[in-house]
Design a protein around this nucleic acid. Sequence first.
DNA 1: TTGACATGCAACCATTTAGTTGCATATAAG
DNA 2: CTTATATGCAACTAAATGGTTGCATGTCAA
Lengths: 111, 111
Amino acid sequence: MDTENEAVDGIFRALADESRRALLDTLFARNGQTLGELCEGRGMTRQAVTKHLGILESANLIASVKRGREKLHYLNPAPIHEIGERWISKYERARLEALFDLKKALESDND
Amino acid sequence: MDTENEAVDGIFRALADESRRALLDTLFARNGQTLGELCEGRGMTRQAVTKHLGILESANLIASVKRGREKLHYLNPAPIHEIGERWISKYERARLEALFDLKKALESDND
DNA sequence: TTGACATGCAACCATTTAGTTGCATATAAG
DNA sequence: CTTATATGCAACTAAATGGTTGCATGTCAA
Protein backbone atom coordinates (compact mmCIF):
# COMPACT_ATOMS: atom_id res chain seq x y z
CA MET A 1 0.00 0.00 0.00
CA ASP A 2 1.51 3.32 -1.05
CA THR A 3 1.61 6.56 0.91
CA GLU A 4 -1.56 7.97 -0.61
CA ASN A 5 -3.52 4.86 0.26
CA GLU A 6 -2.15 4.83 3.77
CA ALA A 7 -3.53 8.34 4.17
CA VAL A 8 -6.90 7.16 2.88
CA ASP A 9 -6.74 4.26 5.29
CA GLY A 10 -6.01 6.57 8.22
CA ILE A 11 -8.93 8.80 7.30
CA PHE A 12 -11.41 5.93 6.96
CA ARG A 13 -10.24 4.38 10.21
CA ALA A 14 -10.56 7.70 12.00
CA LEU A 15 -14.06 8.17 10.61
CA ALA A 16 -15.11 4.65 11.56
CA ASP A 17 -15.75 5.63 15.17
CA GLU A 18 -18.99 7.37 16.11
CA SER A 19 -17.35 9.28 18.99
CA ARG A 20 -14.80 10.73 16.61
CA ARG A 21 -17.43 11.70 14.07
CA ALA A 22 -19.28 13.39 16.94
CA LEU A 23 -16.12 15.34 17.79
CA LEU A 24 -15.86 16.52 14.19
CA ASP A 25 -19.51 17.52 14.40
CA THR A 26 -18.86 19.56 17.52
CA LEU A 27 -16.04 21.41 15.80
CA PHE A 28 -18.25 21.81 12.76
CA ALA A 29 -20.79 23.60 14.96
CA ARG A 30 -18.13 25.80 16.57
CA ASN A 31 -14.52 25.71 15.48
CA GLY A 32 -11.49 26.28 17.70
CA GLN A 33 -12.63 24.61 20.91
CA THR A 34 -10.38 23.62 23.81
CA LEU A 35 -9.91 20.06 25.00
CA GLY A 36 -11.98 20.85 28.08
CA GLU A 37 -14.85 22.13 25.99
CA LEU A 38 -14.69 19.12 23.70
CA CYS A 39 -15.01 16.84 26.73
CA GLU A 40 -18.31 18.28 27.91
CA GLY A 41 -21.34 16.01 27.84
CA ARG A 42 -19.56 13.18 26.13
CA GLY A 43 -19.80 10.49 28.81
CA MET A 44 -16.14 9.56 28.72
CA THR A 45 -12.99 10.71 30.44
CA ARG A 46 -10.80 13.54 29.23
CA GLN A 47 -8.06 11.06 28.47
CA ALA A 48 -10.32 9.08 26.18
CA VAL A 49 -11.23 12.25 24.32
CA THR A 50 -7.54 13.13 24.07
CA LYS A 51 -6.89 9.80 22.37
CA HIS A 52 -9.72 10.32 19.90
CA LEU A 53 -8.43 13.79 19.10
CA GLY A 54 -4.97 12.32 18.61
CA ILE A 55 -6.30 9.86 16.06
CA LEU A 56 -8.20 12.62 14.26
CA GLU A 57 -5.07 14.75 14.25
CA SER A 58 -2.96 11.87 12.88
CA ALA A 59 -5.47 11.54 10.06
CA ASN A 60 -5.13 15.28 9.49
CA LEU A 61 -8.81 15.81 10.16
CA ILE A 62 -8.11 18.35 12.85
CA ALA A 63 -5.21 20.65 13.73
CA SER A 64 -4.42 22.07 17.13
CA VAL A 65 -2.56 25.05 18.51
CA LYS A 66 -1.67 25.81 22.09
CA ARG A 67 -2.79 29.05 23.64
CA GLY A 68 -1.33 29.36 27.10
CA ARG A 69 -2.34 26.35 29.12
CA GLU A 70 -5.15 25.40 26.77
CA LYS A 71 -5.16 23.60 23.45
CA LEU A 72 -7.43 24.79 20.68
CA HIS A 73 -8.74 22.39 18.06
CA TYR A 74 -9.62 23.24 14.50
CA LEU A 75 -11.51 21.20 11.96
CA ASN A 76 -9.67 20.41 8.74
CA PRO A 77 -12.24 19.26 6.17
CA ALA A 78 -9.65 18.83 3.41
CA PRO A 79 -9.17 15.06 3.87
CA ILE A 80 -12.94 14.56 3.88
CA HIS A 81 -13.03 16.46 0.63
CA GLU A 82 -10.30 14.22 -0.78
CA ILE A 83 -12.24 11.09 0.14
CA GLY A 84 -15.24 12.52 -1.65
CA GLU A 85 -13.27 13.44 -4.74
CA ARG A 86 -10.96 10.48 -5.11
CA TRP A 87 -12.88 7.64 -3.59
CA ILE A 88 -16.60 8.23 -3.43
CA SER A 89 -16.94 9.85 -6.82
CA LYS A 90 -15.25 6.81 -8.33
CA TYR A 91 -18.14 4.61 -7.23
CA GLU A 92 -20.56 7.26 -8.37
CA ARG A 93 -19.55 6.46 -11.92
CA ALA A 94 -20.57 2.83 -11.44
CA ARG A 95 -23.81 3.53 -9.66
CA LEU A 96 -26.44 3.06 -12.32
CA GLU A 97 -24.60 0.20 -13.94
CA ALA A 98 -24.27 -1.64 -10.62
CA LEU A 99 -27.94 -1.17 -9.85
CA PHE A 100 -28.77 -2.67 -13.21
CA ASP A 101 -26.52 -5.68 -12.59
CA LEU A 102 -28.11 -6.16 -9.22
CA LYS A 103 -31.66 -5.97 -10.53
CA LYS A 104 -30.85 -8.44 -13.29
CA ALA A 105 -29.28 -10.85 -10.81
CA LEU A 106 -32.28 -10.70 -8.50
CA GLU A 107 -34.64 -11.32 -11.40
CA SER A 108 -32.82 -14.39 -12.62
CA ASP A 109 -32.93 -15.59 -9.01
CA ASN A 110 -36.71 -15.69 -9.28
CA ASP A 111 -36.67 -18.07 -12.25
CA MET B 1 -27.87 6.86 17.96
CA ASP B 2 -30.92 6.47 15.74
CA THR B 3 -31.42 3.99 12.92
CA GLU B 4 -30.09 6.25 10.21
CA ASN B 5 -26.90 6.93 12.13
CA GLU B 6 -26.48 3.24 12.86
CA ALA B 7 -26.56 2.65 9.14
CA VAL B 8 -23.94 5.36 8.64
CA ASP B 9 -21.87 3.77 11.38
CA GLY B 10 -22.05 0.37 9.73
CA ILE B 11 -20.97 1.82 6.41
CA PHE B 12 -18.02 3.70 7.85
CA ARG B 13 -16.92 0.69 9.86
CA ALA B 14 -17.15 -1.53 6.81
CA LEU B 15 -15.10 0.95 4.78
CA ALA B 16 -12.47 1.27 7.51
CA ASP B 17 -10.74 -1.94 6.46
CA GLU B 18 -8.38 -1.95 3.48
CA SER B 19 -9.19 -5.58 2.61
CA ARG B 20 -12.88 -4.73 2.37
CA ARG B 21 -12.24 -1.66 0.25
CA ALA B 22 -10.14 -3.91 -1.98
CA LEU B 23 -13.07 -6.31 -2.30
CA LEU B 24 -15.33 -3.45 -3.35
CA ASP B 25 -12.66 -2.47 -5.87
CA THR B 26 -12.62 -5.97 -7.29
CA LEU B 27 -16.38 -5.92 -7.74
CA PHE B 28 -16.09 -2.45 -9.19
CA ALA B 29 -13.75 -3.86 -11.84
CA ARG B 30 -16.06 -6.80 -12.56
CA ASN B 31 -19.41 -7.17 -10.92
CA GLY B 32 -21.13 -10.44 -9.99
CA GLN B 33 -18.13 -12.53 -8.91
CA THR B 34 -18.32 -15.76 -6.94
CA LEU B 35 -16.81 -16.21 -3.49
CA GLY B 36 -14.06 -18.35 -5.00
CA GLU B 37 -13.15 -15.68 -7.51
CA LEU B 38 -13.13 -13.01 -4.82
CA CYS B 39 -10.65 -15.10 -2.81
CA GLU B 40 -8.03 -15.22 -5.56
CA GLY B 41 -4.71 -13.53 -4.86
CA ARG B 42 -5.81 -12.02 -1.60
CA GLY B 43 -3.40 -13.74 0.79
CA MET B 44 -6.04 -14.84 3.26
CA THR B 45 -8.29 -17.84 3.69
CA ARG B 46 -11.69 -18.21 2.10
CA GLN B 47 -13.29 -18.00 5.54
CA ALA B 48 -11.68 -14.64 6.19
CA VAL B 49 -12.98 -13.34 2.87
CA THR B 50 -16.43 -14.71 3.74
CA LYS B 51 -16.39 -12.67 6.94
CA HIS B 52 -15.38 -9.51 5.12
CA LEU B 53 -18.12 -10.06 2.57
CA GLY B 54 -20.58 -10.60 5.41
CA ILE B 55 -19.65 -7.25 6.93
CA LEU B 56 -19.97 -5.55 3.56
CA GLU B 57 -23.35 -7.20 3.05
CA SER B 58 -24.54 -6.13 6.52
CA ALA B 59 -23.61 -2.58 5.59
CA ASN B 60 -25.59 -3.05 2.39
CA LEU B 61 -22.52 -2.34 0.29
CA ILE B 62 -22.91 -5.61 -1.57
CA ALA B 63 -25.77 -7.99 -2.28
CA SER B 64 -25.47 -11.66 -3.10
CA VAL B 65 -27.52 -14.26 -4.89
CA LYS B 66 -26.99 -17.99 -5.06
CA ARG B 67 -26.65 -19.68 -8.41
CA GLY B 68 -26.49 -23.40 -7.92
CA ARG B 69 -23.61 -24.15 -5.62
CA GLU B 70 -21.96 -20.77 -6.07
CA LYS B 71 -22.72 -17.39 -4.59
CA LEU B 72 -22.53 -14.31 -6.76
CA HIS B 73 -21.68 -10.94 -5.26
CA TYR B 74 -22.87 -7.60 -6.57
CA LEU B 75 -21.66 -4.15 -5.67
CA ASN B 76 -24.25 -1.78 -4.26
CA PRO B 77 -22.84 1.74 -4.45
CA ALA B 78 -26.02 3.35 -3.01
CA PRO B 79 -24.72 3.60 0.59
CA ILE B 80 -21.49 5.14 -0.66
CA HIS B 81 -23.59 7.66 -2.51
CA GLU B 82 -25.54 8.38 0.66
CA ILE B 83 -22.36 8.98 2.63
CA GLY B 84 -21.27 11.40 -0.04
CA GLU B 85 -24.58 13.22 -0.11
CA ARG B 86 -25.51 13.34 3.56
CA TRP B 87 -22.18 13.34 5.32
CA ILE B 88 -19.32 14.49 3.14
CA SER B 89 -21.16 17.33 1.44
CA LYS B 90 -22.04 18.69 4.86
CA TYR B 91 -18.37 19.29 5.59
CA GLU B 92 -17.92 20.66 2.12
CA ARG B 93 -20.00 23.63 3.15
CA ALA B 94 -17.59 24.39 5.98
CA ARG B 95 -14.45 23.88 3.98
CA LEU B 96 -13.33 27.40 3.14
CA GLU B 97 -14.46 28.77 6.47
CA ALA B 98 -12.55 26.11 8.39
CA LEU B 99 -9.41 26.74 6.38
CA PHE B 100 -9.69 30.41 7.24
CA ASP B 101 -10.09 29.67 10.98
CA LEU B 102 -7.11 27.37 10.84
CA LYS B 103 -4.90 29.89 9.08
CA LYS B 104 -5.86 32.61 11.55
CA ALA B 105 -5.11 30.34 14.48
CA LEU B 106 -1.71 29.40 13.11
CA GLU B 107 -0.85 33.05 12.52
CA SER B 108 -1.69 34.13 16.06
CA ASP B 109 0.45 31.22 17.20
CA ASN B 110 3.43 32.91 15.58
CA ASP B 111 2.99 36.11 17.60
C1' DT C 1 -24.25 -43.16 -6.51
C1' DT C 2 -20.00 -41.44 -5.76
C1' DG C 3 -16.63 -38.10 -5.75
C1' DA C 4 -15.20 -33.46 -6.46
C1' DC C 5 -16.15 -28.73 -5.87
C1' DA C 6 -18.25 -24.36 -3.71
C1' DT C 7 -19.78 -22.69 0.22
C1' DG C 8 -21.45 -22.52 5.39
C1' DC C 9 -20.64 -22.73 10.31
C1' DA C 10 -18.26 -22.69 14.79
C1' DA C 11 -14.54 -22.58 17.93
C1' DC C 12 -10.42 -20.64 18.79
C1' DC C 13 -6.34 -17.17 18.87
C1' DA C 14 -3.62 -12.79 18.58
C1' DT C 15 -3.80 -8.08 18.06
C1' DT C 16 -5.95 -3.76 18.11
C1' DT C 17 -8.93 -0.62 20.14
C1' DA C 18 -11.67 2.17 23.33
C1' DG C 19 -11.76 3.12 27.58
C1' DT C 20 -10.06 3.51 32.40
C1' DT C 21 -7.04 5.08 36.63
C1' DG C 22 -3.17 7.39 38.53
C1' DC C 23 0.24 10.62 38.40
C1' DA C 24 3.17 14.43 36.26
C1' DT C 25 3.73 18.97 34.19
C1' DA C 26 2.76 23.65 32.85
C1' DT C 27 0.30 27.97 33.14
C1' DA C 28 -2.96 31.32 35.17
C1' DA C 29 -4.69 33.77 39.30
C1' DG C 30 -4.77 35.41 43.96
C1' DC D 1 4.66 31.69 46.43
C1' DT D 2 0.88 28.92 46.42
C1' DT D 3 -3.06 27.03 44.57
C1' DA D 4 -6.26 25.89 41.10
C1' DT D 5 -6.87 24.84 36.26
C1' DA D 6 -5.72 22.66 31.68
C1' DT D 7 -3.39 19.39 29.69
C1' DG D 8 0.19 15.32 29.00
C1' DC D 9 1.81 10.65 29.70
C1' DA D 10 1.87 5.67 30.89
C1' DA D 11 0.14 1.34 32.45
C1' DC D 12 -3.62 -1.46 32.54
C1' DT D 13 -8.27 -3.86 31.15
C1' DA D 14 -12.23 -5.50 28.48
C1' DA D 15 -14.11 -6.05 24.31
C1' DA D 16 -13.99 -5.96 19.35
C1' DT D 17 -11.61 -7.34 15.25
C1' DG D 18 -9.17 -9.98 11.71
C1' DG D 19 -7.58 -14.04 11.06
C1' DT D 20 -7.05 -19.17 11.52
C1' DT D 21 -8.33 -24.44 11.57
C1' DG D 22 -11.58 -28.17 11.27
C1' DC D 23 -15.63 -30.01 9.88
C1' DA D 24 -20.44 -29.97 7.77
C1' DT D 25 -23.55 -29.23 3.93
C1' DG D 26 -25.18 -28.78 -0.64
C1' DT D 27 -24.72 -29.25 -5.67
C1' DC D 28 -22.73 -30.68 -10.07
C1' DA D 29 -20.72 -34.34 -13.04
C1' DA D 30 -19.23 -38.92 -14.31
